[in-house]
């Protein structure tokens, strides 16, 4: 499988369900340049304490949960408490030490810098 496919393929086999509740796969945008892979994920209602980002064995897991605190009677309800979870396969050679994550306005912004080995290199061609 090509590297590109590796990044975008969503893990299909879901593990055994140990918790009840709605699990939502957050919508994401993924970009890449020579320096890094950049990922945005929509996580409305999730705060910093309830969010975990885990990069292990080239698998990136974004997991979070939200609780809507309301005791009032619902006239209509289109969303509720939820658990967010999505797993991505990442290429080898990401610099795990310098991963940066920010959560703002319900959107997670994740910078995954490439290590030197993964960056493209300009090869100088010498005339013989």
């Amino acid at each position: 499988m090509s590297e590109r496919m590796n990044i975008v393929t969503r893990e299909e086999n879901s593990p055994e369900l140990t918790r009840q509740g709605v699990v939502i796969a957050p919508l994401v945008d993924i970009f890449e340049n020579d320096e890094e892979i950049l990922l945005f994920a929509d996580l409305p209602g999730v705060n910093q304490e309830n969010l975990s980002v885990n990069l292990e064995n080239n698998s990136l897991t974004i997991a979070g949960s939200r609780k809507l605190e309301t005791r009032n009677q619902a006239v209509f309800e289109e969303f509720g408490d939820a658990e967010y979870r999505r797993v991505f396969s990442m290429p080898q050679g990401l610099d795990t030490e310098t991963v940066k994550a920010e959560l703002k306005d319900g959107v997670l912004r994740l910078h995954l810098p490439k290590s030197e080995a993964l960056k493209p290199r300009q090869i100088e061609v010498k005339a013989g």
Partner: peptide, 29 residues
């Protein structure tokens, strides 16, 4: 699972007696 729901952003409306409460999902806004 969302495709069936018409309308975006998703919204909740609650009745709390003397006031109404609305919650809207607006990530990134």
């Amino acid at each position: 699972d969302q495709a069936a729901i018409a309308g975006w952003p998703r919204t909740n409306l609650y009745d709390a007696g003397d006031h109404l409460e609305v919650r809207v999902e607006l990530p990134g806004i």
